[in-house]
Design a protein around this nucleic acid. Structure first.
Length: 264
DNA sequence: ATGCCATTGATACAATGA
């Protein structure tokens, strides 16, 4: 395909507002040419998604917008997207646009924007933990299926102390609280593979730098955007990385794009 | 401990984010 005919590049990018981010998004897509992209935090109603600009680059796209907050999308270059669901099962009352899932070729792709959960404790933290429980239930179902699965997005979880510039500052934060980390580790315990950690077990890897306090300049980052892949894909995982330089662009998101490459 | 910045938008002396 685009990057390399022998591999598929899948990327995830929390854009923090698709309207404000469109020039940066298009520039990054043209520069890195991923085959499949999951976007989070569209912060736009369904009608305001820039469908034409995305399609003009050769991507098919499905998305689930929401006024002001949340919103997720899946893009696929020159490949059909077969939508499976656009809601995380398990709670009919939950109307946040935080999950979208589709087949792209033989690959099942889930894009997620997991709740932030601050302040903790409180109702927002309860919502986060409830969402994670529902997510685990759903991923258990996915593990039973005999298909390759990629679950990527903004997990809003710092998995370990290695994944934050100053752990002691984050102990009471919903992203780093033991409950959040344990819920994330439940997933890896069940067989999901944290793709970037698998390839880089000891490196410091960040995917987010706060807009405050010159966080990017100081490299005061967090690793909260993740790729979980099922065991079927373990031997096809060949590369992974963070497009850190995009975080340094004018008008960038506070997240950087993250990607993996799978052998065909 | 707080604010620091950025985005969306009953354009706010707000709400949310991480």
């Amino acid at each position: 395909m685009l990057n390399n005919s022998s591999s598929t590049r899948i990327a995830t990018y929390n854009v923090n507002g698709i309207s404000a981010r469109l020039p940066v998004l298009l520039k990054w897509l043209e520069e890195t040419q991923p085959d499949i992209v999951c976007l989070q935090e569209l912060k736009a109603i369904q009608e305001n998604f820039p469908e034409k600009a995305i399609r003009d680059l050769g991507y098919n796209v499905i998305w689930h917008g929401q006024k002001s907050w949340n919103g997720v999308a899946i893009l696929a270059y020159n490949e059909e997207i077969k939508e499976i669901r656009r809601v995380l099962p398990g709670d009919p009352e939950d109307v946040h646009s935080r999950y979208i899932e589709a087949f792209v070729g033989d690959l099942l792709v889930g894009g997620l924007y997991l709740p932030n959960g601050n302040p903790a404790p409180g109702p927002k933290f309860d919502y986060k933990l409830g969402w994670m429980k529902r997510f685990e239930t759903h991923t258990n179902e996915l593990l039973k299926q005999n298909v390759p699965v990629v679950l990527c997005g903004d997990y809003n979880v710092i998995p370990t102390e290695k994944d934050v510039y100053k752990p002691e500052r984050w102990v009471d934060d919903a992203l780093f609280r033991p409950e959040s980390r344990e819920a994330f580790h439940q997933l890896t315990n069940k067989g999901w593979i944290d793709a970037l950690r698998k390839l880089y077990p000891d490196e410091t890897i960040y995917t987010f730098w706060d807009y405050f306090r010159n966080a990017y300049g100081r490299d005061a980052g967090l690793r909260i955007d993740h790729f979980l892949i099922n065991p079927m894909l373990e031997n096809r995982l060949i590369k992974a990385g963070v497009d850190r330089h995009v975080r340094g662009w004018e008008k960038s998101s506070d997240h950087a794009p993250v990607w993996i490459e799978l052998a065909k």
